[in-house]
Amino acid sequence: MNTTISTSPSNDSTWEGGNRPFRASYGKLMMWFFIVSDALTFSGFLAAYGFSRFKYIDYWPIADEVFTHVPFLHGQELPMIYVAFMTFILIMSSVTMVLAVDAGHEMKKNKVIWYMFFTILGGAIFVGSQAWEWATFIKGDYGAVQTKGGNILQFGEYKNVNGERVFKRVPVEDFTIAAASERIQHESKKGIWFSSESSLPEFSVGDIYKGLNSNPDILVRTQTINSGGEKTVLSREESLIQLKKNGKRYVKGANLEVNEYGVPLFADFFFFITGFHGFHVFSGVVINIIIFFNVIIGTYERRKDYEMVEKVGLYWHFVDLVWVFVFTFFYLV
C-alpha cells in the first residue's frame, strides 16, 4: 500500500492530513466527484428530451416503429430486440469489469487480464452496435413527405395480418415514378461560384401525388397520436388533399434537420444523447485498454495494489448506469 502516492501519508494524525475523508482514497473520491457531475450532465440531456417530448406529447414518434431493425434480418420488424441485446452486452461487460476488480483485490494478475479483455470486447461490440443503429436510422426505410409546417406525412395501406387489419407503411419508391425533371443540382462549378446546394430529393411532391392518385389503396398517415395511442390515418380524400395542399419535399431517413419518422427533435436528441453516451463508451474502452496494458506489464503487481482497475471500473459501471436510463427513456417509455 505504501508505494502509491495517494495512500502514503507519512503522518497518520488527523490534523496532519493523515485522515482520509469517507475512508476512500483520493483517486476514488475524485472519480465519484466526476461521476456525480457527469450524471448531472446526462440528466440535463434526458430532462431536455423530456421537455421536448412533453411539448409535442401528441406528435412524438413511437420508438417501436422507428427502431425495428436487427442486423442480418432484413425486412423484418423486430422492435426492441437489438437494443435489448446491446443492453445485455453492456451489463455483461460491467460484470466482467467488476470481476476484474475482484480479481485485483485478490492480486490474481492473469484473471484481471482476462476479465479486462472481455470488458474491452463488450465495450467494442456495444460501440459497433450503436454505429450500426445510427447508420440504419440515418438511412431510413420508407421515406415520407415533409409539409410546409414541418410535419411529416407517411404512406401505407391496410393489410390483413393474422386476421387483424393493420396499417403497414409502404415505401414511397414502390408507388412513385420519378418524372424527368428540368432541375439539376446546383453546384459551384456550374453556376455562381460561391454557392451550391446539397443533392436534390429523389422525387418531387408532384411525382408522389401522381403515384398516390393512381394507387387507390395507399393512405396518408400523419404524426398526430389518436386516443388509441396510434398515429392518425387519413381517409383517401383527405390523404390526397393533405399531400396536394401541404406537401413540400420528399425526405428519407433522419438527420439533424429532417426526420422521416416525425418530429426532427426526436432525431436531434437521439443523435445527441446516444452520441454523447457512445463517446463515453468509446473513451471508456480507450481507458480500459491503457489499464489493460498496465496490468499486463505488471505496473499494479509492482505497486501491490490494483486500485486503478477499480477506478476505471467505477467509470465503466457509470456508463452502464447511464445506458439503463437512456434505454428506458428512448426505447421503452
Binding site: S94, V98, G313, H317, D320, L321, V324
Partner: peptide, 11 residues
Amino acid sequence: KAYYITWDFMH
C-alpha cells in the same frame, strides 16, 4: 436496476 448497479457493481 440503477440501485443494484451502483450498490453492488460500484461497491
